[in-house]
Design a protein around this nucleic acid. Structure first.
Lengths: 253, 253
DNA sequence: AAGTGGTCTAGACCACCAT
DNA sequence: TGGTGGTCTAGACCACTTA
């Protein structure tokens, strides 16, 4: 048999299914398959890459584990889309002290263009003093203000994003990135600490100055761990908590 | 062919590899294979359960994803043990603001027997007013006190645990549970919030009263999500942060 | 009825480790 | 050298969805 595409591309390095995964990821990056649409069937993909179904499935298994694609028996394999459920399960970790989880309502307070700080530029992989968008949102749960979000975006990748367009989205912020800017947030890295409320934050959250707040510093990442957004959330944890459930749902059912 | 053990046990319900996983987990619970020792080879296990290697491997794949067993090519598959590395990777989420992670030193301040509160009994699945052990530890990083841990254990499962034995352990606390009491903590569920330091905690951490602290409420779980320990950690996040890295390392490489 | 993903099998070959 | 897990294959059959 002549060498297949996948075999020659692999050049003998590493497992074949990793190379297939790399090719699938590349096609996702290039938007060969857009969010929400079905990939070709496993049979077709296996033929395309010149591998067996088992090998193809092992590559897709990893993309499923990373929540980049979703399988639906009888229907097909789909590129994951950002929606309310995905937000609540994988990106919004705030729950009520009774365990109840609610979808937050958002009010945009600021929308500004500015220059990145040294730290921001470094964390976003931008040149020093590159332009960024700064957005401040107030998030409410069941009518009460609970979170102040400060978002930093690289202006170059969101060049025509305006305050109006941002506010007029009818879905999650990551859905907007995904559909309007071709930027697919696939995971995030977060660092948490405790701080005291400053006067301005206290006013927004309707709490006393120097009340304790949970600070969440998040970097949102797209394919191959490229950073696309910085976000600092200040959370009033009087009636809510941050939920970190590791293990079960993260890996296997 | 006559029906195999696994097939008859499954009674036609659900996938065969899930039933194999259940049988493997049962053997782990019953300590047929103790922590640190190798399971029988995949070939042997496949014969034992009357399934193919592929099916057996799929069952073990899930146990590996849940970090209950570890595979080592050429050597075998081993029951995971609790050690410093496992603690740092999967249970101790505090890192320096520079990203550096250090192993904490522990000083035991209290070791008491008491009755469970209503909430504790409920969270540990105990009868009301059941006996519990209350342990307070002061954790230091690079010589500085950073965390106060309050641990609650069901006394029944740790009946002969004394303060001396607890202090004299030469490894992690979960290692002690695993080796001395046959209790294998496999994952944890955590809720985080921000609080103000009380006078006693402030004194221990050498900070001012009313300084902000990160509060981590953890439930440690063993096989099949049975709760075995409650722990409340109060963390001075002046020089350290809580690191929540979801996705990559949790699921697939 | 046709097409999809989900499960299961049997076997080959490779990479790695202990002896 | 023999045993282990790691990869890859080819195919059968099942469960589910859509039309």
């Amino acid at each position: 048999m002549p060498p297949t595409i996948a075999q020659s591309a692999a050049q003998g390095h590493g497992p074949l299914y990793k190379e297939v995964k790399r090719l699938l990821t590349q096609s996702l990056i290039e938007r060969e398959w857009a969010p929400g649409v079905a990939l070709p069937s496993e049979t077709r993909l296996a033929k395309r890459y010149g591998v067996s179904i088992g090998t193809l499935r092992k590559a897709i298994d990893e993309l499923v584990a990373e929540r980049i694609v979703q399988r639906h028996q009888g229907r097909g394999t789909f590129v994951a889309t950002h929606n309310a459920n995905r937000l609540l399960f994988h990106f919004f970790h705030i729950v009520g002290r009774d365990g109840h989880q609610a979808f937050p309502t958002t009010q945009t307070l600021h929308f500004r263009c500015a220059k990145a700080t040294e730290d921001e530029a470094q964390r976003l992989g931008l040149a020093a003093h590159a332009k960024v968008l700064r957005i401040r949102n107030l998030l409410s749960l069941e009518g009460q203000p609970v979170i102040v979000d400060d978002i930093v975006l690289p202006q170059a990748r969101f060049s025509d994003l305006t305050a109006q367009r941002f506010k007029q989205r009818d879905n999650t912020i990551y859905h907007l990135y995904q559909t309007a800017y071709g930027i697919n947030v696939v995971r995030s890295s977060e660092r948490l600490s405790a701080v005291l409320a400053t006067a301005d934050i206290a006013a927004l959250l309707k709490i006393q100055q120097h009340a304790p707040l949970l600070a969440i510093n998040r970097t949102a990442l797209t394919y191959r761990d490229a950073p696309v957004e910085l976000r600092r959330s200040l959370v009033n944890t009087t009636a809510h908590e941050y939920h970190s459930n590791r293990g079960k749902e993260q890996s296997a059912g």
